[in-house]
Structures are given as C-alpha cells and as structure tokens.
Amino acid sequence: MKSVRQWVMCFHHCLISLFIVAYFSVVGLWLWLSAPGQLKLSGPLAAEIQSKLSPLTCWTGWEQSWSFFSPGVNTENIYTLLTITMQNGLIKLVELPRMDKIKFPEKVKWEKYRKLYNDNMSMSSFAFFRPDVARFMSRANNEPNNPPVRTTFYLATSPMSQPPEFQDPINSQNVPLKHRPLQRYFVYRVHPDDL
C-alpha cells in the first residue's frame, strides 16, 4: 500500500507540475505578445501563437496585461465631451465624468466610467464600442417630442505645465494650443429605433 500511495502521489505531482508549466507558458507568452514597442513578440509566428492562445485565454480569463503608464505617461489632461444635437437644432453639451471636478468619495463610483469614456473610447481598439455608447447617451438624453438626431464625441485636451528639464524641443507637445483644436473622434447619426 505504501508503494501504491507513493505512485499516486508521484502521479499527482506530475499532473500538478504539468498544470503549472502549462499555466505559466500561456501567461508568459500572452504577456510577451502584449508587451509594447520593440519588446512585443511579432511576425507570423506571433500571429500563429496569438490565434492559438486567444481561445484559451478568453475562455479561462487568464488574459492579463500589467503595462499601466507604460511605456510612457500621457503629457496632456484629457476628457471626453459630447455634443448631442436635438431635432429642434439645440446643441446639448454632455460632459463625461471629469474626475478633477468630482469630489473624492464620488470618484470611486465614477472611476469605471472614467475608464470607459476617457481611457478606452478614444482608442482605436475600442472603436466598435462607440456606436453603443452613442446610443446609450442618446437614450439618456431623449425627449419624447424632441429626440436627438446626432451625437458627436470630442476629446478635450489641456497640456500640463512642464519644467524645462523635461521639455522636448522636438516634441509636438510644445505646439501652442490654438494649433490643436478640440479633437472630434466619432460622429453618430441617431435613428428612431435607437431610442
């Protein structure tokens, strides 16, 4: 019985070891694929690996990325501003949460909205979410006799004051504001079905 027990324990050691190796192989490759810049695994091999790993990581939830504030930090303060044009021609300004104008206890509640509207919406990888967000905002601002007809998303930027030691003379961040208008990044035409 002792030898049977040993065999069973050894078998379990092997199973668990296989699981450990498999898990960290998947996670390690995934992190390598999601690294920024030159570090990223690229080429046809990378595409092949990604196509094999995506189903597994999507199913198990093992996908992860720890590249916060990497490789650089934004040098401008940004927030998303909406204009909703109503049927009667009125333009309504809708400011998606500006965390600098919200008091601390409420910031916890609005943090997820900040993540959606300020971080993700302006990124091209989340572009397919924009029509849904536009529809949601249109429904939220709908009036029965005066429905919205058009929703436009703008990215409002304000540069930070930079100490001379950190200023890059070649960088376009030093271009005066008037040459960088409010950046429109999405326009949505609202249909009656959306409301």
Binding site: L31, A35, P36, G37, Q38, L39, S65, W66, S67, F68, F69, S70, P71, G72
Partner: peptide, 9 residues
C-alpha cells in the same frame, strides 16, 4: 512585465 514595459519608455 510592468518593469520591462516601463523601462523601455
């Protein structure tokens, strides 16, 4: 991963 991603910046 965080260190590597930052260090190249």
């Amino acid at each position: 991963h965080s260190f590597i991603c930052k260090a190249i910046g």
